[in-house]
Each structure stands twice: as C-alpha cells, then as structure tokens.
Amino acid sequence: MTTQRPTLPELARQALSSVQRGYDLLAPKFDHTEYRTPDTVLDATARALRASGPFTDGLDLCCGTGAGVRVLREVCTDRTVGVDFSAGMLAEARYAYATAAPPAPHWVRGDAHALPFRRATFDLVVSFGAFGHFLPAERPHLFAQVRAVLREGGTFAFPMAAPPRPGTAAYWALLGFDAAMRVRNAVWRPRFVMYYRTWPLAEVHRDLLEAGFDVTLHQLPELGHRDDGAPRCRLILATKR
C-alpha cells in the first residue's frame, strides 16, 4: 500500500479513462487524495446515526476504499457490506480491513444501477462522496434501487455539503470544474461523469419523496457554519415508507 499522492500524469490518465477504469488506476493512492471523505465528516455522520440507531445490517453504497464502512461498523450490530464497481478500490478496502476486529466487512463488486442484493436486505444504507458520478436523470432509478434493498422503515443516509456562495472562490472553482468536465465529455470517449453542482438539495429532496422516502435534514454543527449562518453540511435521513 503506497503513501504517495498521485502525480499529475497519473491524474490525467485517470481523467481520460472511464469512471471505472479511472478508479482502478487511482485506487492505490486514493486515500492520499482530497477525494477521500474526511474523517471529520465520517465521525459527524456516525454520531448523528447513533442517535437514530442501532441498526442491524448496513450497506455502504459506492464504498470505494471502504472509509464509510467504518461508520457502519460503529452503528450496526450485525453485517456490514461495501459495494463498488471498481475492483481496484475493493482490493484496497480488503487490504485496509484485513486486520480489523471481527466481524469482518463483506465486499461486493456491483453496479449501483443494478444492486446485486435481495430485496429488503438492509436496515441502513449510507454513501459518501459518490453522487457526482450520477447524472440528475439517474437519481430516481438510483433511489429506487436503494429503497428496494432497504427493509421497511430502513434508513438511507448521506451527508450533503452546502453549496458555496455565488461569487466566492469556491463557487468559481466548482463552476469551472463542471464546465471543464462537460467540455471533456463532449470531445472525448469514454466519458468520465463527475460533477459537483448537479445534486442541489431541493431536487434531491423532491426525488427522494417521489421514490417513496420520508426525508429529514439533520444539521452537523461540528462541521461549522458558513458566514451567512447556514450549516456547512447536513445529513440527509431518508426513511423508507
């Protein structure tokens, strides 16, 4: 397992690949990039979920190298599962948890568009940092997949950061990134779907309701507030009706 960050040529090679191939290439160094979900977000999510639990069986959707599985192991009493379509990322996850205390997580290679699980299998589904890889038109199907694998009353939980205020450096950085990705995908194949501004809270909330969830927003105050007083991050808690 490497402790080195990816080089610029390595990142360029990843960006010119498909999403799956790109993550296979990036996997050995992924945990040393800014793309890994920060521990502060994972810890805040775990604290919030402990107040809603305990849960029995949990699934980390698009688990990558398994950072989010740590949250499941803290709040679930039985089985924890990570699913991802990148063999490289799953290999890193297996390595990271090879010496973890039992029960060991289960790692499953599968596509979030067609989850390879029986219906009503989990009490909790979480996901961290993966939704930029799904276009807005794909949300209803994705949420339907999650709802199908949740037991009645089960919870779908994921953090959502507040968008940067218009005119700030962060706002222009994300706008520029998304614009560059649209140009890249217009002129290059295979596509690499990754956008930061395609999942606004109001639209996500609407699609969850239409998919058959009841939705509550839980502030994560330990992650701070913006200058206008809005929380920097909220935890979406969607309960299967």
Rank of each mutant, 00 (worst) to 15 (best):
P164V: 02
R118E: 15
Q20R: 15
L90N: 09
V81T: 12
R151P: 04
A12C: 13
Y195D: 06
L42C: 13
V69F: 02
E138L: 08
R5G: 03
G53Y: 03
D178W: 03
N185L: 03
G64S: 11
T198K: 04
F131Y: 12
S52I: 14
R5V: 06
L175I: 09
M1Y: 09
R47L: 12
D214E: 15
V75H: 07
T7E: 06
P221I: 08
D60L: 05
L11K: 07
G66H: 02
A104R: 14
D207I: 02
E152N: 09
A67W: 00
D214L: 14
C233P: 06
P159K: 01
A91K: 14
T37V: 12
P116T: 09
L142Y: 04
D111H: 10
L115G: 00
A46S: 11
R184C: 01
A161Q: 13
P190L: 03
T80F: 05
V125W: 00
P116F: 03
R94I: 09
G129N: 09
R47Y: 05
P116Q: 09
G82N: 08
T80D: 08
E34M: 15
F156C: 01
N185R: 06
L49I: 08
A186D: 11
D207P: 00
H218V: 15
P6R: 04
R189K: 14
R151L: 10
F134V: 05
R226T: 10
G129A: 08
A120V: 12
H32T: 06
R118Y: 11
A157I: 06
G82I: 08
E74N: 14
V41M: 11
F122W: 10
A157W: 02
D78N: 15
R5N: 07
S17W: 02
G22L: 07
A91M: 11
L115N: 00
L42T: 09
C233E: 14
V193N: 03
R226N: 13
T80Q: 13
A137G: 11
T37H: 04
Y195K: 06
G229A: 10
G132V: 04
T40D: 12
L201W: 05
L25E: 04
L25K: 03
R73N: 06
R241W: 10
Y171G: 01
Y23V: 05
D60G: 05
T40P: 01
C63F: 08
T45E: 04
G53F: 08
P190N: 01
M160I: 15
F128E: 03
V149M: 02
A114V: 12
H113F: 11
A112T: 03
V125I: 12
G58Y: 02
Y171H: 14
H225Q: 15
L61N: 00
A12N: 14
L150H: 03
T65P: 07
P164I: 06
L49V: 08
F158V: 04
G154Q: 09
P6S: 01
V183L: 15
H133V: 13
T216I: 12
K29A: 05
H133L: 12
C62M: 02
E74C: 11
M181L: 04
L235C: 00
T80L: 09
P116V: 04
D178M: 04
A157E: 01
R139G: 00
V83H: 03
R73C: 09
L124G: 00
G64P: 07
L8A: 10
P102T: 08
T3K: 08
S52Y: 12
Q4T: 14
